[in-house]
């Protein structure tokens, strides 16, 4: 799991360096993490499943063995988290 928050002060981390494993080139800078990467792992898994199920909450609910409104509430929680990250 990609660390997204500073273990010292809990501020949001940024990407400083990326490396090519093939030629060992390193690209350094100060890049924002993608918004989806800021979500906790469980929420990222949910988003992944949601996309793989063509955005069908009914299918998600049946696969997760949860009720439709429960799955919809989980999605609403993720949406509000994403909105808060974007602010």
């Amino acid at each position: 799991m990609l660390p997204t928050y500073c273990p010292g002060c809990h501020a949001q981390l940024k990407v400083k360096c990326m490396k090519c494993e093939s030629c060992q080139t390193e690209v350094t800078g100060l890049y924002d993490l993608p918004v989806l990467a800021l979500l906790p792992e469980v929420d990222q898994q949910f988003v992944l499943r949601f996309v793989k199920n063509s955005g069908s909450l009914k299918e998600m609910a049946s696969k997760l063995k949860l009720s439709y409104p429960t799955v919809r509430n989980m999605l609403n929680e993720i949406i509000s988290k994403l909105n808060s990250y974007e602010k």
């Binding site: 063995k65 949860l66 009720s67 439709y68 409104p69 429960t70």
Partner: peptide, 11 residues
């Protein structure tokens, strides 16, 4: 039980 059952099934 509504985290697992709702809608027509619960009805």
């Amino acid at each position: 039980p509504f985290t697992r059952i709702a809608g027509w099934q619960a009805f």
